[in-house]
Design a protein around this nucleic acid. Structure first.
Lengths: 185, 185
DNA sequence: CATTCAAGGTTCGGTGAACGAACCGAGCTG
DNA sequence: CAGCTCGGTTCGTTCACCGAACCTTGAATG
């Protein structure tokens, strides 16, 4: 637990939220789930977290109802982790954290841009579309690479995230040598 | 560090934000700063964090430019920690986390309500005023106790937060028996 | 002028979590 | 049937957190 009994005695919704998503790596797992990562190994290579920690976080998020674990093939049996409604409701948290990190942490070059897929406008700090004046659900968000993004990531998931893409669309890892598939260098 | 070198290699504004505010207790310290807590001892009794951890978090937040440490009396020399502009920019993060914790964590009774001081309307999930249709800066937010709030907290800071109050207004701890004011010269 | 008190820390031993490398097992695949 | 991939578990080390005790500065008290 992030704070265990210490947070439990806190009279605060923020503390209760942090009980669920406040531990190390947890919010980054959720972020990757928004990016379309669904499989244990893809989380692993993209996050670089220890395997045991990742397994514990995924299990805790499933128990908290943030992720749903479901079978996507039977032979061999393989499960994937997808965001539930409760997990999708975390989008404003990630959006505001990212906006703060980009605006307020010194030396931060924009890494990714988020646009309203319907009109192309870049989202505001609250995840709203300044043009349409509506909060944009994550399924309607298009992610585009920014100037600060590493052009040649070592992991196949990072390479798959180089191209503009919708949030929540499952990631297909891109191997380096062959199988450019639809990519660039 | 929340994740040290591990987060540094992350190509993500969210990871950079978590480098600053992702450690245990950090966001709760910032939350208390929004509530008006400014002094080491008040943070200590209200949070219940270990003294060494609190000292480390306050120092890290000052170094990150989230809090400003400033002398408020000379004899004896005493400093207080107040939010900087960069710290105030974290309000959407806390607001969205609190909204998620209240809406999505099971068994959560509303603990505090946040209203637009100008019009009295309760804030939306993004910290905006649904009536005025503007994002409400924290200085214009009034906090009111909710049904889930402990009516008789053990610590004097918790008692001071029982009454409706503006965010950012300095907290005056309330001792239990009488002594309406602290021994402040 | 010695004692006590309060604020704001620091120090220290014990404990639990994170880390990373190794290992494991099921099920394909050559 | 040897090897490979996926999805973990195990294990020893390191590190951060915890909580109690202690320390320092400066008033206030007797």
């Amino acid at each position: 637990m992030a704070l265990g009994k210490d947070y439990a005695h806190q009279q605060c919704s923020i503390a209760r939220a942090l009980e669920v998503v406040g531990e190390r790596w947890t919010l980054l797992v959720v972020r990757d789930a928004f990016y379309g990562v669904r499989r244990y190994n893809d989380f692993l290579v993209h996050l670089g977290a220890p395997r045991a920690v990742l397994a514990a976080r995924l299990q805790a998020l499933v128990e908290a109802g943030v992720l749903d674990r479901r079978r996507y093939q039977e032979s061999p049996p393989r499960d994937e982790y997808v965001l539930t409604e409760r997990g999708l409701a975390l989008w404003p948290v990630l959006r505001s954290l990212g906006a703060w990190g980009r605006a307020e942490v010194p030396g931060a070059v924009p890494v990714r841009h988020f646009h309203h897929a319907d009109c192309g406008t870049e989202l505001g700090s609250y995840g709203e579309c300044p043009a349409c004046r509506v909060p944009v659900p994550p399924a309607d968000v298009e992610m585009r690479p920014g100037a600060g993004l590493d052009r040649d990531p070592v992991d196949p998931v990072g390479r798959a995230l180089l191209r503009p893409r919708r949030l929540l669309v499952p990631v297909v890892p891109v191997v380096r040598e062959d199988t450019p598939e639809r990519g660039n260098s």
